[in-house]
Write a protein that binds this DNA or RNA. Structure first.
Length: 608
RNA sequence: GGAGCCGUAGCUCAGUUGGUUAGAGCGCCUGCCUGUCACGCAGGAGGUCGCGGGUUCGAGACCCGUCGGCUCCGCCA
C-alpha cells in the first residue's frame, strides 16, 4: 500500500533532484534500493572509524551511515554540526538483527552514504532541537524558527492545520461558503480597544483592524449567501492571558440565514463530533450537548463557563437563613443577595492545612472576608467556626437540603448574588484537582438565555450585556413591556471543560427592534443611524432572519492538543507584552513614514 | 495600571547562617575510538552571578530601585 507520504512525494517532488524518498518512510521493502534523502542532522554519533547520523525531515528520522573509505566525505561529516542541512545518496540496507532500533519506524534499515552535499552548515544551536529540555520563553520566541523544528511544537502546528482542514471540509459539505472580509475597516464604538491604522490619503482619519467580522458576516446574510464561514483573524488591543494571545487571534466565524438557535446548535455539535472522531482519541461526554440557562449555570456552577467534568455543585441555602440569628447569613437573605453552599463529600477529615489553604485562597485570590465551613467528622463531632450560631432548625434544614452525611464538609459564602456565585465557582475550580478530571473527556455544553442587558454600576446606566445585534426573546413587545434587566436574548455560549470557545446569537434583523434596544442602552436614533446606518439600511432592504457563532480556533486547538498555553498552538506568537521577539515588532518607523501619515509623536516621558 | 514568581557559563540548573580562586550535566573546540542510536573516553575554552545603588571588613546570597520573562487581577460588546 502506498503511504500518504509516498503519494505526497509524487505530487511535489517529481524531479528527484534533492530526494527520492522522505526520511520517515524507509522500510524493509526499500532494501537494496538506491535513494536520495535530504534533511537536518538530528543527531551525530562519531565512532572515529564510522559515523552515524540521524537524518530528520518533516516525516521522520532515518539513520544514515558514513564509512571511512570515502575519505573526503568522511572528513566533511566529522566537522558537521547538528541541525546542518544535507542531501545524501546511498543504498538502503537491512540492519543486522542486533542493530535494529525498535524505537524508530525506520529502525530496521539504514542508508550507506556514497555521496554527500552540505546545503547549509549550521552554527551551534542556542538550545537543543533533538532534546525536549525546558527552555526559557524568551529564547524560544526569539528563535521561533528553531523552536518550531522541535517535535512538540512541530506536531501542534500540523495538528492545527489538520483541524482547520477538517473544519473546511465539513462546512463545505454542509453548503457553507468561505468568504473573506476586510482587514482595514472602521473603528467600532463597542467592545475592546481597537488597533488603529492611520490613513495617508485622509489626514487625521484611521482604519481599525476588525475585532471580529461581525457586521460583515451579517451583511453577507442580507446579501443572500445563506451560509458563510471564514477562518478569520481578529484583532483586539487587550492584555494577554495564558489562553488569550495579545493582539490577534483566529475565529471560525460562521453565520447562517433562516435558522433558529436549535438549527445552529446541530451544526456545531456535528462539527465538533467530526473533529473529535477524525482527529482525536477524546470522547464527547454528552451529545447533543447539554443546554444550561445562564442563571442556572451561575447558581449551580458559579460560572458561565463551567467545567462539567467537575462533580461539585453549588447549592442555594438563602431561604434557610432568612430569619437566622447568625447575622452574617441573615443579612444576605434579602433581594439580590444570597447564601451559597458547596458540599464536598467525604472530606471532613482532611487535615487542618486543607481548610487553612482553602480559606487563604478565598481571602487572597477571591477577596472574600472569610470562608465559613462545617465539618461533619467521621467520629460524629461537628467542627465549625459558625456552627454555634445556628439554630437546631437551621442545622436540620441544612442536612436535609444538602443531603449531608457523616464525613461531608460544607463551605459557605454570602453576599451579592453575582459576586457570591463567582466566588463559589472559583472554589469549585479550586477543589477540581481532588477529582482527577479526565483529560480525554470533552464536556461540551451550551449556555443559553443570557440577559439582553446588564446594569453598569460605574456609569449608573443600562448596557448591552453581550452583542447589541442579538435578538431579544419576546421581540419588540418584550422591549416595550418588560423590565430591561429581565429580558433574555437569543444569545448563547459554547463551553468545553471550563473553556469558553465562543459566544453566538440569533441576530436582530428588524430595524424597529434595533432602535428600541439601543434606546434602552442609552443610544438615540440619531446615534444609531450615525454608527450603524449601514446595518439599519441593510435591514430596511430585505434581511433574512439569521444567526451565527465564532469559536476561537486557537482555543479549540489548545483543547484538543492538551496545551495550557496558547503560544504552543500558534506558529509565531507574540509575548505577553504584545511584542514579537523574533522580528522586533512593534518597531519605530522613519520620520518620512510619519510625515506621510500626518502623524506627530507625543511620547510619555520614559519613552523619549 | 496593580500583584506574585523567576533571572548564575551557549542551554538546564546547584551554590549552606554573608567568607579563599563561583561549580555540575549538556553543548562548543582538540585528540582517541568500526555498530551506535541520549554512543563512549581524555583534555580544553567559556562567567560584568540581568543592570544600578546601598548595608558590610567582605555580597551570587541581605536591602532599595530598575530591566527582562511568565502567571494572575483590571481589561476582553
Amino acid at each position: 500500500m502506498e503511504t500518504q507520504e509516498r503519494a505526497l512525494f509524487r505530487a511535489i517532488a517529481p524531479s528527484a533532484q534533492y530526494r527520492t524518498h522522505f526520511c520517515g518512510e524507509l522500510r524493509k521493502s526499500n532494501v537494496s534500493e538506491t535513494v536520495k534523502l535530504a534533511g537536518w542532522v538530528h543527531r551525530k554519533r562519531d565512532h572515529g572509524g564510522l559515523i552515524f547520523i540521524d537524518l530528520r525531515d518533516h516525516t521522520g528520522i532515518a539513520q544514515i551511515v558514513f564509512e571511512p573509505h570515502l575519505s573526503d566525505i568522511f572528513r566533511q561529516v566529522e566537522h558537521l554540526r547538528v541541525e546542518s542541512v544535507i542531501c545524501v545518496e546511498g543504498a538502503v540496507i537491512a540492519r543486522a538483527e542486533d542493530a535494529i532500533n525498535p524505537n524508530l519506524p525506520t529502525g530496521e534499515v539504514e542508508v550507506v552514504v556514497k555521496s554527500l552535499s552540505v546545503e547549509s552548515a549550521a552554527e551551534p544551536m542556542p538550545f537543543p532541537i533533538a532534546d525536549d529540555v525546558p527552555t526559557s520563553e524568551e529564547l524560544r520566541l526569539k528563535y521561533r524558527f528553531l523552536d518550531l523544528r522541535r517535535e512538540k511544537l512541530h506536531r501542534n502546528i500540523l495538528y492545527r492545520s489538520k483541524i482547520i482542514s477538517e473544519i473546511r471540509r465539513y462546512l463545505w459539505e454542509l453548503g457553507f461558503n468561505e468568504i473573506q472580509t476586510p482587514i482595514l475597516t472602521s473603528s467600532s464604538p463597542e467592545g475592546a480597544r481597537d488597533y488603529l491604522v492611520p490613513s495617508r490619503l485622509h489626514p487625521g482619519k484611521f482604519y481599525a483592524l476588525p475585532q471580529a467580522p461581525q457586521q460583515f458576516k451579517q451583511l453577507l446574510m442580507v446579501a443572500g449567501f445563506d451560509k458563510y464561514f471564514q477562518i478569520a483573524p481578529c484583532f483586539r488591543d487587550e492584555d494577554a492571558r495564558a489562553d488569550r494571545s495579545p493582539g490577534e487571534f483566529y475565529q471560525l466565524d460562521m453565520e447562517m440565514s433562516f435558522i433558529t438557535q436549535d438549527d445552529l446548535f446541530k451544526v456545531l455539535e456535528g462539527l465538533f463530533e467530526h473533529i473529535t472522531t477524525t482527529l482525536s482519541q477524546k470522547r464527547i461526554m454528552q451529545l447533543p450537548f447539554p443546554r444550561i440557562k445562564y442563571l442556572d449555570a451561575m447558581n449551580r456552577y458559579g460560572s458561565d463557563k463551567p467545567d462539567l467534568r467537575n462533580p461539585l455543585v453549588i447549592d442555594d441555602v438563602t431561604a434557610i437563613f432568612k430569619n437566622s440569628s447568625f447575622k452574617v447569613f441573615a443579612s444576605n437573605a434579602e433581594a439580590g443577595r444570597c447564601v451559597k453552599a458547596l458540599k464536598l463529600k467525604g472530606r471532613a477529615n482532611e487535615p487542618r492545612l486543607f481548610f487553612d489553604k482553602a480559606e487563604e485562597f478565598a481571602k487572597k485570590e477571591l477577596g472574600l472576608p472569610g470562608l465559613a465551613y462545617i465539618r461533619y467528622k467521621e467520629n460524629g463531632e461537628v467542627q465549625s467556626p459558625i456552627y454555634k450560631f445556628l439554630s437546631d432548625a437551621e442545622k436540620e434544614a441544612l442536612i436535609n437540603a444538602l443531603r449531608i452525611e457523616t464525613g461531608d464538609v460544607v463551605f459557605f459564602a454570602a453576599g451579592a448574588w453575582e459576586k457570591t456565585c463567582k466566588a463559589m465557582g472559583a472554589m469549585r475550580n479550586y477543589f477540581a484537582p481532588l477529582f482527577e478530571l479526565d483529560k480525554d473527556l470533552l464536556a461540551f455544553c451550551w449556555i443559553v438565555d443570557f440577559p439582553m442587558f446588564e446594569y453598569n454600576e460605574e456609569e449608573k446606566k443600562i448596557d448591552f450585556s453581550h452583542n447589541p445585534f442579538s435578538m431579544p426573546q419576546g421581540g419588540l413587545e418584550a422591549l416595550l413591556t418588560k423590565n430591561p434587566l429581565e429580558i433574555l436574548a437569543y444569545q448563547y455560549d459554547i463551553v468545553c471543560n471550563g473553556i469558553e470557545l465562543s459566544s453566538g446569537a440569533i441576530r436582530n434583523h428588524k430595524p424597529e427592534i434595533m432602535y428600541k434596544a439601543f434606546e434602552i442602552a442609552g443610544y438615540s436614533k440619531e446615534e444609531v443611524d450615525k454608527k450603524f446606518g449601514h446595518m439599519i439600511r441593510a435591514f430596511q432592504h430585505g434581511a433574512p432572519p439569521h444567526g451565527g457563532i465564532a469559536p476561537g480556533i486557537d482555543r479549540i486547538v489548545m483543547l484538543y492538543a492538551d496545551e495550557s498555553n496558547i503560544r504552543e498552538v500558534i506558529a509565531f506568537p507574540m509575548n505577553q507584552k504584545a511584542q514579537d521577539l523574533m522580528t522586533g515588532a512593534p518597531s519605530e518607523v522613519t520620520p518620512k513614514q510619519l510625515r506621510e501619515l500626518h502623524i506627530k509623536l507625543d511620547l510619555p516621558e520614559k519613552h523619549k
